[in-house]
Design a protein around this nucleic acid. Sequence first.
DNA 1: CGTGTGATTGACGCCTGTCAACGTCTGTGG
DNA 2: CCACAGACGTTGACAGGCGTCAATCACACG
Lengths: 234, 234
Amino acid sequence: MNNSSYIPDCNDCSLLYHSVFKHLKKEELDRVNYEKECYSYKRGKIIYNEGSRINGFYCINKGIIKIYKTGVDGKGQIIRFAKRGEIIAYRSVLSNEVACTSAKVIEDAVFCFISGETLVSLIKNNGDFSLELIKLICLELGEANSYITDIAQKTVRARLAEILIHLKNEFGVNDDGVLKISLTRQELANIVGTATESVIRLLSEFKTDSLIELNGRQIKILDEQRLIRIVNLF
Amino acid sequence: MNNSSYIPDCNDCSLLYHSVFKHLKKEELDRVNYEKECYSYKRGKIIYNEGSRINGFYCINKGIIKIYKTGVDGKGQIIRFAKRGEIIAYRSVLSNEVACTSAKVIEDAVFCFISGETLVSLIKNNGDFSLELIKLICLELGEANSYITDIAQKTVRARLAEILIHLKNEFGVNDDGVLKISLTRQELANIVGTATESVIRLLSEFKTDSLIELNGRQIKILDEQRLIRIVNLF
DNA sequence: CGTGTGATTGACGCCTGTCAACGTCTGTGG
DNA sequence: CCACAGACGTTGACAGGCGTCAATCACACG
């Protein structure tokens, strides 16, 4: 099945973008490339929902996906983002549980679906791939642990400053210095774990203090050093 | 090297307690069993420190270990506990980074050290083991993600109630209904992500409301249903 | 018996969430 | 072309949860 205007070639993903597939043997990659189903989704479209059973995982070829949980009172909590070369939903398949997160496109995306059996088969038969995948998951786990400490101990102000820097590092900036990723105030709040109003107020403060420049959803970091100082403040 | 009064046999760990090693072949397990170094630590002793380089991982044979990060102002954040049959420190070895957490014994423990090379070798050569290990890490990742949502959205009160129930489920209760795991107020605070005084005040409240019974560090859950209601309150 | 660690309680204040009102922008349909 | 709805952004008022500081108590241990 194919839902995409063009079909990405796995060789691009794996070789050019250092994805987890870089250790696959030629025939394994061919199998993945042959078997995969491709999709092209616009911003706002949901890839999978919390609680649903997924029998495979997705590899992002283009765009940005937000992975989030729905918590108390329906409020969302963004766990992480996924972009080109990264994989999502592997956790549910491997631990054989229903999805514990939802995934929504926030920047028009192209991505491929690969079955869980294929993933398990690759893990069982290719030790280098296994090791690479484990490293990847361990990395994600380490980040999650750091975030727990942050969110439990730092003020909303510090966390927001941290997120801005993090977004710059992960997604980069345009020629004019504006963060490439575009998020609503509510989405920012759902990363930081606070109320939309708080994000707005703090962004305004940052602007007043000449730390950032605001133009709607466009955010430009003016003084990264002072922002970092805020992150480490307590 | 051996620091322990007795040397645990890996066959006990793996077969009796469903550890991640259950899929090892006889000769692999023998290798681990032969190579491992055993230690016996009392409460309070540190197994490894955040920032140190570890070239192996530990398998817990007895006791309870707390895994924690040191955050803002030296305040600790407990990430998880490890008990019999569980493994710790594998993340650092596999992602080839320095440890991002510290590990301290909170109930007299016996545990074994196994080198990172052995772990990598097992992963590369035994697909079933790899898969099992991945499932384990995915489980931990899922829990971390849930905790991020909790800590970001729930009140301290709800989180404390949740932790009490969690501790009961993970470590069980004695014949008299008292939680088996014994924690200081500060340790409880470091799980929940709050101040020691807040934990004390809330525990007192719970006691006043006949939800729990307190006797120093001994905590007995009297009304689990109402505690659960507090968890889901908002 | 002095010392130290942990537990408790009270006072105080600020950060932050909630509620409400209003402005802005975009797309849609008449 | 305009009216309208709906999503998003902004600002102000307000209360209360929770962190911080400080003093005191309890208990174990050398």
